[in-house]
Design a protein around this nucleic acid. Structure first.
Lengths: 146, 146
DNA sequence: CTATTTTCCTATTGCTATAGTATGAAAAGC
DNA sequence: GCTTTTCATACTATAGCAATAGGAAAATAG
């Protein structure tokens, strides 16, 4: 039941882009350095975000990435579902409607359904902007560091 | 973020034992047949439950397993944590207290902490007896089938 | 026009966990 | 002593994760 690095890194990338949004495009190299993540691996992850239109890219020198939309429009749930796939704890819930013919008599499916609902209600109610705010709270003094 | 078959099967085994509790010991072979699970694989799973004292075993002919305690004393959370290990979505929360020195400034850990709390609050509030009740509701007519 | 920077694309690799299968020993009952 | 059952352990196949690697394509700088 672990979230993979792909999903976690994707959230950190989006947060990093939000925190360093100066209007200019941000290079993978810079994000990788700040986040201590392999540059090449990060390329693959950000490419997923790019294909989904979550970030906007520019190639070539002085190129890079920036958020396609405002930080408050991205929930952690969106990002995790994009990069991790379904967050359902069992695959039988991945199809809508559920295909399994035992569904109506399955005693355990209600647990997994409740679990999925609980998971979604957490991650769909945290946006990248919330993380930015959290960052600014705990690191407010950073602004004054020379 | 999937729960493995080991954890899911363990829950089904406990439910199966609860549903077929006639006072006699129940063979792995019978559970395996009813649940459509490989006998040998089930042996390994039930062995975990046995070592933890969740079930009681008797060897030899006419041997088998039964629940060590009443169905209402087993939560799904107990069973999943036993068989799956920690259900924390990130490993940094597996240590108590958290070891990571970035903990206090980590913007994302609050998401994972909330997620873990949400997961726990679901699975710790469903007992095997709840699943028995659910079964009896949806299959009440079974009692009258010849 | 060329060199550099950066994204973009895809192949490969090492590792680990899962989901079993297989073999047989030990205990208990008939 | 034979059969039934749990108990213990070794093995295997597959898949996904977490990268690493190599280079093509696009854009800019000079």
């Amino acid at each position: 039941m672990k979230i993979s690095t792909r999903g976690r890194y994707a959230v950190r990338v989006m947060l990093d882009l939000a925190l360093h949004d100066t209007g200019e495009y941000i290079k993978v190299k810079d994000i990788a350095k700040r986040q201590s993540i392999s540059e090449k691996y990060l390329e693959q992850i950000i490419s997923i975000l790019n294909k989904a239109g979550y970030v906007h890219s520019v190639r070539g020198a002085q190129g890079g990435y920036r958020l396609a939309n405002k930080p408050e429009t991205y929930t952690v749930g969106m990002i995790l579902r994009l990069t991790e796939g379904s967050l359902s704890p069992v695959s039988c819930l991945d199809n809508d409607p559920v295909q399994c013919e035992r569904y109506s008599i399955c005693e355990t499916v209600m647990i997994w359904q409740r679990l999925l609902d609980a998971i979604n209600s957490v991650i769909d109610n945290v946006t990248i902007q919330d993380l930015v705010d959290k960052h600014n709270e705990s690191n407010a003094s950073d602004d004054y560091v020379i």
